[in-house]
Simulated assay, not measured.
Amino acid sequence: MVRISIPTLPKAPLIPPSGLSILPLPQAASYLAQFLENGKGNTVMLTGAGVSVDSGIRAYRGEKGTYSNPNYKPILYHELVEDSDRGDMFRRRYWARSFLGYPPVRDAEPNPTHIYIAALQHLGLAPKLITQNVDNLHRKAYSLLSPTYDKSSILELHGTLAKVHCLKHRHEQTRDIFQEDIARMNPIWDQEAKEAERKGRRPRTNPDGDVELHGVDYRSFNVPPCRICEKEKAKASMVKPNVVFFGETITPEVRDES
């Protein structure tokens, strides 16, 4: 058995606030501009869920670090990949909820914060970005400024929802293709999703693309196998989004790059 604890924040900061945080805003902005100019090319930025809130994707935590929804329980990695009837139900639950939760993430647009960060990269003031977000919005923002941008300038520490892969052969597909497979195998769910979208009743989406559904029987939901495995006549393999789940570790390559 694996026990996973999701930590909470301490009541008080571990370190006192920096001098920069207590300066009047114009002085703080001037200091930051000078810092970026003097260290041109040597500054790396790190972002989390908060930068995407204005794009309609809510964060896990509120202003003081408390959980916005303390009763929310994200699926854990070992649950998703468990090879058993219980694991099968976890996968049905995850993909049913993610099927409904992915379109708002896919359709979200970069907000001014994403654009400002992309501008700092484009100008070479802070060319490298590490993001904990899986919503693809930093890449969208940068492509607006520079369609031929260097994709290696953005490191998605926890992966991206825009792609999926099978666990056995690492066959990779776009998420849009997998969404089509889900819709084809679950016409009733697809019809309900389209009706909800038409009426403006899209469910609230978490940063990982998951939504909360209550009183739903997931046994009727069908999870598609890897279509590339099927095409190659290989044994069907579980499909997983290209994101790092709770209880999963980032790859050594991503760790070293960060």
Rank of each mutant, 00 (worst) to 15 (best):
G87S: 06
D150E: 06
D107C: 04
P10G: 01
F90M: 06
G62Q: 06
N42T: 10
D256E: 15
G56W: 01
H214V: 14
V223F: 02
I117R: 00
I117K: 00
R204W: 13
R93S: 02
H114D: 00
V51I: 15
N42A: 15
P13N: 09
L14I: 08
G19D: 12
L144E: 12
P13E: 10
E37L: 13
P112M: 05
P110A: 10
D190H: 12
A162V: 03
E63P: 01
L144F: 13
Y149T: 04
I177H: 14
N186F: 04
A183S: 09
P16S: 12
E253G: 09
A28R: 04
I250L: 09
D217W: 05
Y67P: 07
E248Y: 02
N186Y: 03
D107K: 06
Y102C: 03
K140D: 07
P74W: 09
D208K: 02
E156V: 02
T249H: 13
L25G: 05
N133D: 04
A183R: 01
P17D: 10
N242C: 14
L157G: 04
D176T: 13
I6M: 09
T174F: 15
K235I: 10
E82F: 03
E212H: 06
M1G: 15
R106W: 11
S153D: 10
L36A: 10
N38G: 06
L100M: 10
A236F: 02
L100V: 04
R184S: 14
L120M: 11
Q121A: 08
N38I: 12
I154E: 00
Y149P: 01
D150S: 08
Y142M: 11
S18R: 11
I177Q: 15
L36H: 08
W189S: 06
E212K: 07
R106S: 11
M45F: 07
F35C: 09
A108H: 02
K231H: 08
I4G: 03
W189V: 07
L145H: 04
D217R: 10
S146G: 06
A196I: 01
